[in-house]
Design a protein around this nucleic acid. Structure first.
Lengths: 134, 134
DNA sequence: CAGAATCCCCACGGATACTG
DNA sequence: CAGTATCCGTGGGGATTCTG
């Protein structure tokens, strides 16, 4: 008899992979983390440069995001004891390795976002069509 | 020449890539989408099987997530006109292509989640250390 | 079995004001 | 310049109940 209809556990092909996926998504699934990581992927930047380079981010969220990423060792914070103060953020090797994986997602999006948009349009049109036809 | 200190625009190395990244994250950055996609990556499943295979998801969120993914053409919904009803969800080619990119993230997590956890612990210890040392 | 509908909490994140 | 502190609206998502 064996398996064939044994789903039982959390999942089949990815035992605790689901846990890992959730961990990563809890980390970079927020609104700003990957934007910050991507921006720092090009070059180390100071706080004010990040504010300018990540359009729409608020001071609060930039700070919160940076602290979170620093906590996980994805970037380093270097404060120079000058006046006026200067603080530079830079990706760690770990952060850069994550950037690669994120870029894979970005590539997927670049290739398929049009298709997704089209699917969405068609799907929504069917919806209104049913209402008119019904 | 020139440049070197020209950050100006949104970002440098990824003009509208940031837009694409945000699109993907708005799609899969939620709490359940990638779990559902990953689960369906192993095999097509019916609604109740998904409930069992994605631990912790509620009926509401499974339905909402499935509808969103179907809308974007990442999976198909097939309802068999039987009683009791039977509905099977299956990834489309588009969904499977996204699964590949998601798996890249999962791999990163599988390799580095320990390192991240360690960084986090060290960082937090320094925090309490400062409080005790201060 | 496979949802739809409703209620409601709370934490993510924006705006603003203040500080070393 | 590089933050911190506070207030507060919005919506993501959980629990529960009802239906075809």
């Amino acid at each position: 008899m064996a398996a064939e209809r044994t789903i039982s556990g959390p999942c089949r092909a990815w035992p605790q992979d689901s846990v890992f996926i959730r961990e990563v998504l809890d980390r970079i699934g927020d609104k700003w983390s990957v934007l910050v990581i991507s921006t720092l992927g090009a070059a180390p930047l100071r706080y004010s440069d990040l504010m300018a380079s990540v359009p729409g981010i608020s001071q609060r969220m930039l700070t919160v995001t940076l602290k979170g990423l620093e906590r996980d060792g994805l970037l380093t914070r270097t404060a120079f004891p000058e006046v006026p103060p200067r603080v530079v953020y830079e990706l760690t090797d770990l952060g850069r390795s994550l950037l690669s994986a994120v870029m894979a997602l970005a590539s997927w999006a670049a290739v398929h976002h049009g298709e997704v948009a089209e699917n969405r349009r068609v799907h929504d049109d069917v919806g209104v069509g049913r209402r008119k036809a019904g």
